[in-house]
Design a binder for these strands. Structure first.
Lengths: 351, 351
DNA sequence: ACATTTAATGCGAGCGCTTTCATTCACGAT
DNA sequence: ATCGTGAATGAAAGCGCTCGCATTAAATGT
């Protein structure tokens, strides 16, 4: 049993009767070799069970074939879905994905980027456009291609969706159903420009309809079910509660639905609810959630393709904006005509 | 503007008036240096903005400070939660996490492991004990520490939970509530020993109570909400439908609940439902889901700690088994006494 | 037949760091 | 004074691969 050390490139070269350089080319630029030589080298490599040393390649070539992704958290369906898509697409192009998370902490993002850069990543995915100037500076100084996701920064390649539009779509749908008092529960706005944009979109739609968003009707909550429940509870306990609620993400919307139902309200007849994201669950809760579809997996896939193209020096679209779309399901209805039990009546009739 | 090339270790050495070896030690074994020298080197490093080159370190030292994790999918709360915990713990120890996924495809797992190994990972996390012999062989040949998660293989360090017990706990709870006809919806059993074990646990509890699991009452579905709905639909359409359903994972259980409710059944009075995992959502659906808590994040955290200890040549527990626990909420009730609308009556009275 | 390309391969100098071994120096013991 | 001793540091040989340049051989043109 010859359990000698791992074969190196030189071993293959010797075995195939060629120079190390030729073996190296057989791996990375096979088109430069004659068919015969290539075949011989491949045979030797195969026979010896050769597999190139990634660290050595990285050192010699200056490329690590590794891409870093820094997400707010991996523990959220929308990010893990994007991550999954990134991973698949990168793997297909020979790249590995290095992940880090910052839990919505702007300084933690800086640290993560620093670490990844020190790791020699060839490219970087970041979420959102808002970040510490230092972070941008580091990436720039390192000369590492970076593509943003979800939100775009000027002049920076990105794969985004129109979050403002998403908010507008959600609000407009409610307005068209006669709702005046619309509550909005967003995620924490700090270091989360996706949520900010969506909120802005809601405001826009409201203003376009001659309505406003009273301070009391907007609240920030953690981006999870519990946040949705709490936010909803808060809004429903208002003297003048909303007739409809927009969740900054589906999880919040669903949490709101649960809370409303737990309070004996019927969705949508007592309270309408709209989400944004269209997570798997949205179609399966009852009533099914009307929401604005955001192509999460596509964002990841596109971002991966973009960075690979960039690394291959191909043309890169400066920023692609993926479409969002209102998905009408069953969680929204016309504004209730009459006061309902735990809520005081809404003002003014409509329609 | 001196935008020269990145400073190297030698630059720091020159600046600090010491040898490169000393700088190297300042980084990785500071305890070997005199306080004075260390301070001087650190100052120079800081001033020059030095950051060691990971590839060079990896090549010279034979350690990449990188750990690979191969998951069935990132796009599932339980795995992404574990991943998140792994990532945090590894980062704290100076390691980076390289991720890959195989989508429940055993050959894809082999490929992922091969790739990660070629990448020079210092350690590996895998899910479950079932896999291609080739995969094990590769890891062994590479001499890379590997820790398994969720399910243990003999003689292999692992952080697991007793999935059989989880299944038993779920079933026993139902049995104690008088249920005889218990349906089970698991995820696909192929290359998923967690689900197999849970199913086995259910069988055990049933047998211990003198009951059996008829073939018709067990079904496999995708591990998501839609799977739960379909599985539930199938079971409810049986001539003799179950009075209770166990979901192999919470997502399935919740999907079942939705389906049951969509069919006009009330949970738990018409149908009891138990899940396994205790995902965030479980506490927030309505009725809240009775389930078996599996400490997902802890699995990840422990696994990370274990592999770090191993890499530091510290003692490693061969296999830690984390506790599972039945969480009684509101989705289970006594078996219905009388036939209910869409279902034919259950046989024999109980209690 | 001879110069000129073009294609295929080899040479060798690194890439930036780690680590073994040797060296130096200070200090307490003899 | 002399000799270990151990702590602190330096010298230098790689780690395994890539790539610019040089070289050779074959093909093409005149």
């Amino acid at each position: 049993m010859s359990l000698n050390r791992k074969p190196r490139l030189a071993d293959v070269a010797r075995d195939a009767g060629v120079s190390p350089a030729t073996v190296s080319r057989a791996i990375s630029q096979p088109e430069l070799l004659s068919g015969e030589t290539l075949a011989r080298v491949r045979l030797s490599a195969q026979r010896l069970g050769y597999s190139p040393d990634a660290a050595a390649r990285a050192l010699a070539s200056g490329r690590s074939m590794t891409i870093g992704a820094v997400m707010p958290t991996l523990d959220n369906g929308i990010f893990s879905k994007a991550l999954q898509a990134m991973q698949e697409n990168l793997a297909a192009a020979g790249y590995q994905l290095l992940v880090a998370s910052h839990d919505y902490n702007i300084a933690a993002e800086t640290d993560a980027v620093r670490t990844l850069l020190a790791r020699g990543v060839d490219g970087l995915f970041l979420v959102g456009a808002e970040r510490a100037p230092e972070t941008r500076a580091m990436v720039e100084a390192a000369g590492v291609p970076m593509v943003l996701t979800w939100c775009a920064a000027p002049g920076q390649p990105a794969v985004v969706v129109d979050n403002v539009l998403a908010g507008t779509l959600a609000a407009r749908h409610l307005i068209e159903n006669g709702h005046h008092r619309i509550g909005v529960i967003t995620g924490r706005l700090k270091f989360n420009d996706r949520q900010e944009a969506r909120l802005e979109g809601v405001r826009k739609a409201l203003e376009a309809a001659g309505l406003t968003l009273p301070l009391a009707l907007a609240c920030e909550q953690p981006t999870n079910l519990a946040g949705g429940r709490m936010g909803c509870a808060k809004l429903l306990e208002l003297a003048e509660p909303p007739t409809a609620i927009i969740g900054g993400i589906d999880l919040i919307a669903i949490g709101s639905m649960v809370e409303a139902q737990a309070r004996g309200l019927s969705v949508p007849s007592d309270l309408s609810i709209v989400g944004i994201d269209d997570v798997d669950m949205a179609a399966h809760v009852s009533p099914s959630l009307t929401t604005v579809h955001v192509p999460t997996a596509l964002i990841g896939a596109q971002a991966a393709k973009m960075i690979v193209a960039w690394l291959r020096n191909q043309d890169v679209d400066k920023a692609v904006c993926l479409p969002v779309e209102l998905i009408v399901r069953r969680s929204c209805g016309r504004v209730p005509q009459s006061p309902r039990s735990p809520l005081s009546g809404s003002h003014g009739m409509d329609s």
